[in-house]
Amino acid sequence: MAILAVALAVPLIWHPVMARLSSRAVEPSYLPALEASRERIAFRPDPIKDLQRLRPSYVFIGDSMLGTRIDAGYLAGLLGQDVAMLARAGTGSAYWYLSFKNYLVASGERPKVTFFFFRDLNMTDPLFRLTGPFRWSLDEVAQPEEPALNDVIASRRQGAWFRVHGAVNRAYNVDRANAWMERQLYDWPTRLWTDDEPARRAWLETMTFETMGLERLRPMTDADVQATVDAEADFARTMPQSVLPLIIDLAKQHGMKVCFVRVQRRPVGNTPPAQSPRMQEYMRDFKAYVEAEGMFLHDDTGDPMQTLAMYEDGDHIGRAHRQRYTRQFRATLHPLFR
């Protein structure tokens, strides 16, 4: 027992160690329901200026599902109107909501339609891509306080396990120590070629999204294929604890129109992936809810034009087919582009 007691006491050392080593300002988390105070990356305001300069008629928000499907320049050419992309690979609905709120709404621009691209259950799963390495990208779109998002997260973390997890994190100062340790671990090699922190971050971004980005991946059937948990396909239960109502409320407050676009998962052979009855019901409920709120939902699933040949790895569309998808998208949703 003594050995266990000592072993449990040793990690408490993170408190004094971090107080000494973690020299950056430690800020209270904007998601206290999820994590304790830690170093964070500052909010990145550049997209607000970009939006104000561009004054786009259409804005697209999403992750790599969007980035590998819509060619913004090409679409702008087809429409004769400007199009803006707020796309970032490896993000989830919490990030999309914050992009919408803190970039688009904050910019004062009011595009005709804002499109959110998602896969299956992403829009009602706020915990998707929220923790671990994903929190750094979330930092860049978050304000010092995000009470609405925090309430959503809190409603999802009420079980005993989450309470234990939170208590352990607080007791050992895990979030702060983790943020510091990870930064040291992943940053130090870049100091070999530059001391400038913004340059180091830019280098890491280039490595992640270009040198080793999606374009460089092999065509693999199962790469980045996120398995859908059928049991979670319960719209009535998950929607109130998601960012979906927040997005819709915000859009209504500012007189904006939003269209949610569910992308088609990778076809099997040349047939669309099978849909469980639960998933079909989920999408029916999703559509009914969104339309009742005066917004739109478009589901790519089952579109015979989206063949396997268009896909590269996992659910991503190949670069060579991006314009074809964009063209089809515009044709299919032409009422929204008038």
Partner: peptide, 21 residues
């Protein structure tokens, strides 16, 4: 025994902070 306890404690502390997500 003290060394064993410290070794387990240090490994536990590192797992808490650096375990892969």
């Amino acid at each position: 025994i003290v060394w064993q306890a410290l070794a387990v404690g240090v490994m536990f502390a590192t797992i808490l902070v650096l375990r892969s997500r």
